[in-house]
Design a protein around this nucleic acid. Structure first.
Lengths: 234, 234
DNA sequence: ACATGATTGAAACAGTCATTTAAAATATAA
DNA sequence: TTATATTTTAAATGACTGTTTCAATCATGT
């Protein structure tokens, strides 16, 4: 493998990362990628075999990038409070989803987020293991905050509430501006967002101590039929 | 317009709703749709002009369906507590996102959710107005729960936290099972989910009374550097 | 410098896509 | 029924897709 070969290979991966992040696997075209990389259309098939193999390579590199760059932030800090653990976790998950177009963090994060939300061909085992590991870490953080009286299913639901708040800004960062157009997009920094999500979640979790779900202020009369039919489950 | 013409038109819309909900605008093909409708490939272009016009029709009908069927649930109940308002809102937003393949609620909801999260060609003004209206309703509900001392931006962030928890289950319903595989998918009913999201959010919002963000339990020492760099913003 | 293998480039391939065409079939109106 | 308009059908069109082919080019080791 010559030197120039490695260069074009890298350029192809870089271009593919951007195109896949922007359009997804199916909508991205080899011609877009090769043109952006300044290479021939046949180069993808020569260097990687086919489109899907290139995608797997992009997925793998994005995975490695996020792991080495940010995943350390999701390790338990151990001695600190659960709130700080959560704060670090949220920011570590959130940061790759942001960053401008040129930012590597944003690109890699968007590729992974797209794959997680709508798995295109086949999710690789290492990506699945990453997700499960993160979910496990989050479980632990939540457990620290809610205490031991809460059952496992509730802990998982709380984890999903947190992940929902985070992933809301992934492929759907545009949706935030759509829901709240008057709120300038650039003004929502990662830190501000991480602060809010952490605070929102900590406030909620610190009251999830009791397993009795009806002890939380639903004493009003049920006007809406939807509310009436289901509020007994609370 | 003959009677049979109207029949095939309706069948095309019905088939298109399903295919668009499953694959999105770009990936859905006219051949899929017309075959599912038992019509010719040219029928779409004859009855609607082109693929995008058919998509607009599907969007419009899904919009009307959700509006008449569920949007009443998002009206303020007025006299009841904010928590019940939130519970009704959450379930009204959540229900269309669920339901099995044959369920009309699920189909229409998924079409709209797909469009909101990743707007395909151009979001129509009535859809935009629906979103803004819903956001406004949610703002009001949140405002009722947090009180008047909280600034508008925080109210909006709280609204997005709630929407994040809801939309987490939209195209990404699979992601829940992915994060927590041992949790049987069917076991998470709409009511259970709505109960949890409502409880989680109410617990959080009821503590968002004070505008001072640092009064909420971040007194631990900062181990993680990410936490350290940003915790001063709290 | 030369020969050999690795890499690139332009073109062509087969497949699918949305869309168009025009003839056939059907419904509607007289 | 007959004439007219509407609707359906099969086939073709042109633009895209991923992939292949093969000659030209380049790099590398002798």
């Amino acid at each position: 493998m010559s030197h120039q070969s490695q260069v074009t290979r890298d350029q192809l991966v870089a271009a593919a990362t951007r195109v896949f992040a922007d359009h997804g696997f199916k909508s991205a075209t080899i011609r877009q990628i090769s043109h952006l990389a300044g290479a021939n259309v046949a180069s993808v098939n020569y260097h990687f075999g086919d489109k899907e193999a290139l995608y797997q390579e992009v997925l793998k590199q994005s995975f490695d990038y996020v792991m080495t760059r940010h995943s350390s932030g999701t390790e338990r800090t151990g001695a600190s409070t659960g709130a700080l653990d959560l704060r670090a976790f949220v920011e570590a998950m959130l940061r790759p989803l942001f960053g401008d177009e040129a930012d590597l963090d944003g690109l890699h994060g968007r590729v992974l987020a797209r794959e997680v939300i709508e798995p295109a061909p086949a999710m690789e085992s290492w990506l699945r293991s990453l997700i499960e590991k993160q979910a496990c870490v989050l479980d632990g953080i939540v457990r620290d905050l809610v205490g031991q009286q809460v059952d496992d299913q509730t802990v998982r639901l709380c984890g999903m509430s947190i992940m929902g708040q985070i992933l809301f800004y992934s492929p759907c960062r545009a949706v935030a501006a759509r829901f709240y157009p008057e709120l300038p997009a650039g003004a929502i920094g990662v830190e501000l967002l991480a602060d809010h999500i952490t605070r929102f979640s900590v406030e909620a979790l610190q009251r999830f101590t009791g397993p009795a779900p009806r002890a939380s202020g639903f004493e009003g009369r049920g006007d809406s039929e939807e509310a009436e039919t289901a509020v007994h489950l609370l």
